[in-house]
């Protein structure tokens, strides 16, 4: 049992370090996409991944990157897509939110609140469009520094 737990922890560390293809400053663990790592009966590793959006083109890239990373670390690996419970922005870690803001994307805020500008920190911002450059982002603008910025949509 001791060795199997170690294997699981090792595999988890490898999978958790895989960067998100759209926002490479964040890992899939930061985004809450990586739900768990499981050791199958045949000894292989199954990484459980929750897609942010069902049509997200990055889903396949992420699954491939996780499998590859685990294989390179010596594991027999596959991934499983977990739809239920559905991914939510609440699963983004504190660390993830910090990295996201540093990368120039405003992290999600509760409904009814406006995001702070990730460039200058001003709270006076306005929405340009509810849809942005990827499925998970909306387009906002700071009315203080006048820079447009991406906002990670609350889902």
């Amino acid at each position: 049992m001791v060795s199997s737990q170690t294997t699981e922890q090792r595999a988890l560390a490898v999978a958790a370090a895989v960067p998100d293809p759209e926002i490479p400053a964040l890992t899939i663990a930061d985004l809450g996409i990586l739900r768990a790592v499981e050791i199958a009966e045949d000894g292989g590793v199954i990484a459980h991944l929750s897609p942010t959006y069902m049509g997200c083109p990055a889903v396949l890239a992420i699954e491939l990157a996780v499998t590859t990373a685990l294989q390179e670390a010596g594991f027999q690996a596959r991934t499983e897509r977990i739809l239920s419970p559905p991914w939510t922005t609440d699963w983004i870690t504190e660390e993830g939110r910090r990295k996201m803001a540093a990368y120039g994307i405003a992290p999600p805020v509760p409904e009814g609140r406006v995001p702070d500008c990730p460039q200058c920190g001003s709270a006076s911002t306005e929405k340009l469009s509810e849809f942005g450059s990827t499925a998970c982002k909306a387009l906002w603008r700071c009315t203080a520094c006048l820079e447009p910025f991406d906002y990670f949509k609350c889902l």
């Binding site: 069902m54 049509g55 997200c56 942005g132 499925a135």
Partner: peptide, 16 residues
């Protein structure tokens, strides 16, 4: 903005 919105909506629909 609408181009992005409609493309995103299409993507969601095709994802489902």
């Amino acid at each position: 903005e609408e181009d992005l919105a409609l493309s995103n909506i299409a993507l969601d629909l095709i994802g489902s």
